[in-house]
Design a protein around this nucleic acid. Structure first.
Lengths: 239, 239
DNA sequence: CGGTCACTTGATCGTCTTCAATACCAGTGG
DNA sequence: CCACTGGTATTGAAGACGATCAAGTGACCG
């Protein structure tokens, strides 16, 4: 199988083409590297496959590595001792994980579908950043963007209603993809834990949106947005 | 008056001692600079005073400057068109604002008490970072730490109860200060908008904590924590 | 003192949660 | 082909937590 074959790839098998041909490179911090700089990156990057629902970062574990997602979608989350879970984000191709300087990971990461990623040790990344300040600059920009996204999410979680939350979620997913037809790789439970709601409320709100003619659900994972404008206004809290 | 006199300080008045003697330097990205590097920083930094409730960053306005708080406390927040507000954080001495790469500020910032800050233009900061990679490294670390804090706050807003939220808030304030006696520079309304609650719920929860013997309120802005351990357990969602 | 403003307390209400039942879909085996 | 099964999603009814509306208290200041 496709997945299995990739799982066998050992670090030493990474060739320069491994990075040069990477689909995710354009949206990644690695985009700033070229030519033999890229070859050097390829030498220290370990490719890895993660199967659905497999955890590859565990909250509280020693933070030894950084990750760069190259395919698939992962959920990033924090948990409370009694099991309550907050998904802090969904990581997709090009996303960089593990920026935290702490010695321990501050969140867990779990594959939703089949995920491919590049792994670097902290030491390797630091050496890389020393030699390629452009990459460091790029990482700083990325971090800034994530901070902005985090603030948006705080506004959502602290002050928006259930309808506004789901609308915001769908609108942000629809940006950068096909404006209408959306695929949701994550379950209702993931959406609920991302929006600070329960699966029942998420489900009810989907139903409400269907009745209001905002969208249709051809299948449970496919969303067709029928009224982008109204959904966007709802997301911003229009009365 | 103290504040007024500082308001008159023009950029050219900044001397090297202005940065070398800065109280906030130790907790700031500037900490990595020394000697004449620090003098260069002082030349491009504009000192500024901001009076209580004065807005110095406006959400949506062109992002021309970066800021470094040197004294006082500011609230950072995002708003919805109907006035709902989410405070995304409180900035104190040493905190760096405006990391976002976007051309517009993604949040507003307002002084709570008397705030002193350093202002840099984007161009100046970029030139500075090019010459002092250590400072860039430090900024990246800072951004990482803020990202971690943002994720904690998402867990709080999405999944914690009112009591757990207030307990988390007090515990995080008590870290790094005197373990008990806390001063709250911000109003109940600020606390509410930070925790995603209303002022009434915040007030009731304070009363509940008093009754439970967790803390006392010598004055409305002074909190004495009586049972740090129990408060910390409550903050983590212990049943 | 009287006035203002922030905070506190009380009573009621509503949104979302919880608990429970039902529907749906894909996969399996008779 | 169809019944059976397990998991996920949807729908329904009841309940709870925090919000809202409203009144009361206290501190600061002219």
């Amino acid at each position: 199988m496709y997945i299995e074959s990739h799982k066998q790839v050992a670090p030493s098998d990474n060739r320069a083409e491994g990075c040069a041909a990477c689909d995710a490179r354009a949206h990644s911090p690695c985009a700033v590297l070229e030519g033999h700089d890229l070859e050097r990156l390829a030498r220290v990057a370990v490719h890895q496959h993660v199967k659905p629902d497999q955890i590859f970062i565990e909250e509280g574990a020693p933070a030894t590595c950084f990750f760069n997602i190259t395919a698939g979608t992962a959920r990033l989350y924090k948990s409370l001792p009694d099991g309550r879970r907050q998904i802090t984000g969904f990581a997709r191709a090009g996303d960089f994980l593990g920026l935290a300087v702490s010695t321990e990971y501050g969140f867990s990461a779990e594959a939703i579908d089949h995920v491919r990623l590049c792994r670097f040790t902290r030491a390797n990344l630091h050496r890389l950043l020393e030699d390629f300040p452009a990459m460091e600059r790029r990482l700083l920009e990325t971090a800034g963007n994530e901070l902005v996204a985090a603030q948006d999410q705080m506004l959502l979680l602290g002050r928006k209603t259930a309808s506004e939350r789901l609308a915001s979620f769908l609108v942000s997913l629809s940006r950068g993809g096909a404006p209408n037809a959306l695929h949701l790789p994550m379950s209702r439970s993931d959406i609920a834990d991302y929006l600070g709601l329960t699966i029942e409320t998420v489900s009810r709100t989907f139903t409400k949106f269907k009745s209001a003619g905002l969208l249709s659900l051809p299948t449970v994972t496919e969303v067709e947005i029928l009224d982008q404008r109204r959904l966007a206004r709802l997301a911003e809290g229009a009365t």
